[in-house]
Structure formats: C-alpha cells, structure tokens
Amino acid sequence: MEGENAGSALPPMHPAIAPLSFLLGRWKGQGEGGFPTINSFAYGEELLFSHSGKPVIAYSQKTWKLASGEPMHAESGYWRPKPDGSIEVVIAQSTGLVEVQKGTYDTESKAITLQSELVGNASKVKEITRVFKEVDGELSYVVQMATMMTSLQPHLKALLKKI
C-alpha cells in the first residue's frame, strides 16, 4: 500500500540505481596515497552511498590520519547511473575543487570507471580518473590524477569493508 512505508527508514529503491545497489551502505577501511610531488601517506576512510527513492545515489567520503584520527579530506556528490551502462558523477571536495565525471559501470563485474570531464576551481589539477570495484564483499578503488606538471599518475588507492 502506498502510504504505509512513509515511516520506514528507506524509500523504495528507484529502478535506475538497482544496478549499483551493491554500493549502497557504509564502507570503512584504509588507503594509501602518494604523488610525484608529495610524500606518501596512509589514511583511514569512510564512504557512504545512500538513496532517497530518486534515480540518483548520494555519495559522501571522509578520511583521517591513522595515528591521530585527525580529519584529512572530505567530499560529497551524486552518482547518476543510466540504463545504457553509462554514469554521470559530480563531486565537491572540501578543498574547493569540483569534479564532473562521466564513465561506465558493469553490473556483472561490479566495476565503475570514471573519467573527469571537468575539474573546476583547481589551480593545478587538470584530470582525475577513478575506478571502483567490489570483489568478495570488499570495495576497492584507485584514483589517478594529472596536474599541470605531471601526466596521469596513481594518487590514491584503498580497500574498504561494508559496516
């Protein structure tokens, strides 16, 4: 009945996001980062993928220093999967940088590949790619970045478990 789940925690899932439903929930784990122009570092991370019944997945991320728990980075945005296997993603970072990304998803391999169409409000970053993959209940990702000084290089990678 229509009005009966008004008090439930989650609205019905929109069919457009069903192919990426494996992402939904809270993920936590550790990652490592580096780049030719900075020292390597390790971090803790939590991702949250949620939905409101609309054809979009809300995304938020936060990282912290492993030793102290001090906050490091945060970003949030929206993921819009399309029926043809393409996906549009917008992300705003706590640094002020914004990303408009397009890519593809594969429901069988549970993989999402994103390529920046636009990196805005960034003085040095000119390109960002992100690849997410879920294997055996763990979510891994690799972020690559290009700057005015470098070609596309590995920047971040992490392995997260659903909590």
Rank of each mutant, 00 (worst) to 15 (best):
I163L: 15
D136V: 02
T104G: 00
E4I: 14
G103D: 02
T147A: 10
P12H: 10
M13Y: 04
E127W: 04
T147D: 03
A146V: 08
F49I: 00
M72W: 07
L114M: 11
M148K: 13
S68Y: 03
M149R: 11
E2C: 07
T129D: 11
N5E: 14
V98W: 14
G31F: 10
E46H: 01
I91G: 05
S76T: 06
K62V: 13
A18P: 04
K102P: 05
E4T: 09
L160Q: 03
Y59T: 00
Q144C: 14
A74R: 11
K124N: 09
Q61R: 08
K162L: 15
K126F: 03
P71H: 01
F22C: 04
R26N: 08
G44K: 05
S151M: 14
L156T: 06
L47W: 13
W79H: 01
L47G: 00
S52G: 12
V135K: 12
L20R: 05
L24T: 05
L159G: 10
K110T: 06
K110Q: 15
R130Y: 01
H51D: 02
A18K: 15
V100F: 14
T150P: 10
H155T: 01
G33A: 05
A58T: 02
E4M: 15
T129G: 07
D84Y: 03
T129S: 14
G103N: 00
I91N: 12
T95I: 08
H155C: 08
T107K: 12
E46K: 10
T37W: 13
A6N: 06
K102T: 08
Y43F: 15
E108R: 07
I128A: 02
E134C: 13
D106C: 06
S116E: 09
S50L: 11
I57V: 08
V142M: 07
Y43T: 03
T150L: 10
L152E: 00
V89S: 03
P15M: 04
K28V: 12
V100N: 08
V142G: 00
Y105P: 00
L114W: 05
V56H: 04
K124G: 03
Y105I: 00
M13W: 04
G25F: 12
M148Q: 13
T150D: 10
L159I: 14
K54W: 04
S52R: 03
P55G: 04
S151W: 11
